[in-house]
Design a protein around this nucleic acid. Structure first.
Lengths: 171, 171
DNA sequence: GCCAAACCTTTGACATTTCAAATATCGTTC
DNA sequence: GAACGATATTTGAAATGTCAAAGGTTTGGC
């Protein structure tokens, strides 16, 4: 009986105005965070049980799956939002499992390009199909119109956040 | 420095590419995930720079701050969505820093209760104030009405997900 | 009272995560 | 063509994360 009374909250906002509104962003953030954790844990559990893979591995392979020619590790780092050093270890383990291949192009020896192997493509194909189904199942009770609306509005949040980051944007 | 203005990480576009056949739920999930990562990284960076604390430590202390009598480790684990073994280490490090105290009650020697110290309460108070401000700033461009709407709709998502978990409750 | 089941926490093996420092290579400049 | 700054990746230390197994401690049935 903790958070089923959103009507009460709305009333408070209307009545008290800016007072209560100050904590709106905090409450949204906490709810986003807990929901994301919940979904992540469920996906992690299923990836592990059904495919013996981890979520970061899945994310990384997803990037390589759409770029059949492979990606440089730095590019992988940006796309997965994972640090460089982390990508190194992830690719290393995936290579050990025969899912990914590392190549250094002739043109630039600083670069390492990671590519999915045939085995990696087959495995990821199966995981991706399952993954999409899991999400549909988990969100089955949400009105599709709401899903679309959420997608748009969260885009607005992301945009606002991107414009207010502290790191490296004051010239 | 060709990227001084494009430092914005728009994972979405890169990841999604042409978003043809992608299901709605999958797209929402990818956007939620990338947005949450973005905010988390920003909060992590600021906690580190301004308070020398980590995000998991902040989360754990937040729970103890609201329960001045302390919480059992299992309860902390549930509330922070962190595994038991992980809580053990987190509390251990916080105790080393003098922010948290561990007590075993007389009634049940299986139990360990963690409590914020005076030092811990002072530190958390400062962090919480800053934390709330950071979120307000980051979401400053989002219409408050949208924030409220998002809070409600994400609640619906969370509720749906909770009802479709494989792990523990189908009955 | 005893024993088995249930409960709470810790431990151990690994994987992931960040940051900073180190390495290696490339391009340009002089 | 040697040196310097920029670029790309790796490494290392410390923290966080999962899971499964192992420790102690109750608790309940007999």
């Amino acid at each position: 009986m903790t958070e089923s009374e959103s009507a009460t909250v709305d009333l408070e906002i209307i009545v008290q105005g800016a007072q209560e509104g100050k904590k709106l962003e905090l409450r949204l953030w906490l709810r986003m965070l807990s929901t994301t954790k919940l979904v992540s844990q469920e996906i992690r559990r299923r990836l592990r049980n059904e495919f013996g893979a981890t979520l970061p591995q899945f994310d990384l392979m997803a990037q390589l799956y759409r770029e059949r020619d492979g990606l440089r590790l730095g590019e992988l780092s940006k796309r997965t939002m994972v640090t460089n050093g982390n990508v190194t270890g992830l690719v290393e383990r995936l290579e050990t499992d025969g899912l990914v291949l590392r190549v250094t192009p002739d043109g630039d020896r600083r670069v390492t390009v990671a590519k999915l192997t045939e085995k990696g493509m087959v495995l990821f194909g199966a995981m991706a199909t399952a993954h999409e189904g899991w999400l549909r199942d988990m969100m089955a009770d949400v009105d599709p119109a709401i899903v679309t609306e959420l997608w748009q509005d969260i885009g607005a949040v992301k945009s606002s956040v991107s414009n207010h980051l502290s790191g490296s944007d004051f010239d």
